[in-house]
Amino acid sequence: MSQSKRPTLRQLEYFETVARLLNYRMAAAALGISQPALTTQIHALEASLNTSLLERSRSGTHLTPEGRELLPHAREVLSAMRSLQDHATVVSEGALTTYRLGVPPTLGPYLLPHVMPELHKRFGQLKIYVREQPHQTLVEELRHGTLDLAILPLPLMARDLVIERLFSEPLRYVVPAEHRFAGTPVVRPRQLRGERVLTLEAHHHIHALVREACDRFGASIERDYEGTSLDTLRQMVVMGLGTAFLPALYIHSEMHIPEALYVCELEGIPLVRDHGLAWRAAAPGRHFYREFTANLREIIDGRLGDVVEISGGAGGRQRRGGP
Rank of each mutant, 00 (worst) to 15 (best):
P117C: 10
T199M: 10
E55Y: 15
K127A: 02
V115P: 12
I42M: 11
A314F: 15
H43P: 02
S52Q: 06
P176R: 02
M255L: 14
T106N: 12
G218I: 02
S229P: 11
R290Y: 14
I206Q: 10
C264T: 06
A248D: 00
E69L: 15
L200G: 01
P258S: 03
E132V: 11
G316F: 14
L154M: 15
Y173P: 10
S253T: 04
S48W: 08
H120R: 07
R273H: 06
H179Q: 00
V307A: 02
R286S: 06
L45I: 01
R75A: 05
E201L: 01
D215P: 04
R280Y: 15
L70D: 00
G312R: 11
G276A: 05
L45R: 01
A213I: 07
Q235E: 13
P247D: 14
P153V: 01
P176S: 02
I42A: 05
G145A: 10
Q11H: 08
D301V: 00
A282Q: 04
E69T: 13
L261V: 12
G94I: 09
P7H: 00
F292H: 09
E226P: 03
A150C: 07
R223E: 14
L96Q: 05
R286K: 10
A281D: 07
R25S: 04
E178H: 09
V175Q: 01
K5R: 07
P284K: 11
P258F: 12
A248T: 00
Y110H: 10
R56M: 06
A177I: 11
R188M: 08
E76D: 09
M116F: 15
A202M: 13
L230I: 13
V210I: 15
H144P: 13
A74P: 09
G194M: 13
V115G: 03
V18A: 03
A294F: 10
R172V: 01
P185N: 01
A281V: 09
T243P: 01
M1P: 05
P323G: 03
D160F: 10
R216Q: 09
L198Q: 03
G322E: 14
E93K: 14
D306N: 07
F217C: 00
R190E: 06
L271V: 09
T98V: 04
S59M: 04
L166H: 07
H87S: 00
L142Q: 00
F292V: 12
W279M: 06
E141T: 09
H204M: 09
M157E: 12
P65T: 05
D160P: 14
V197S: 03
P247M: 15
L49A: 00
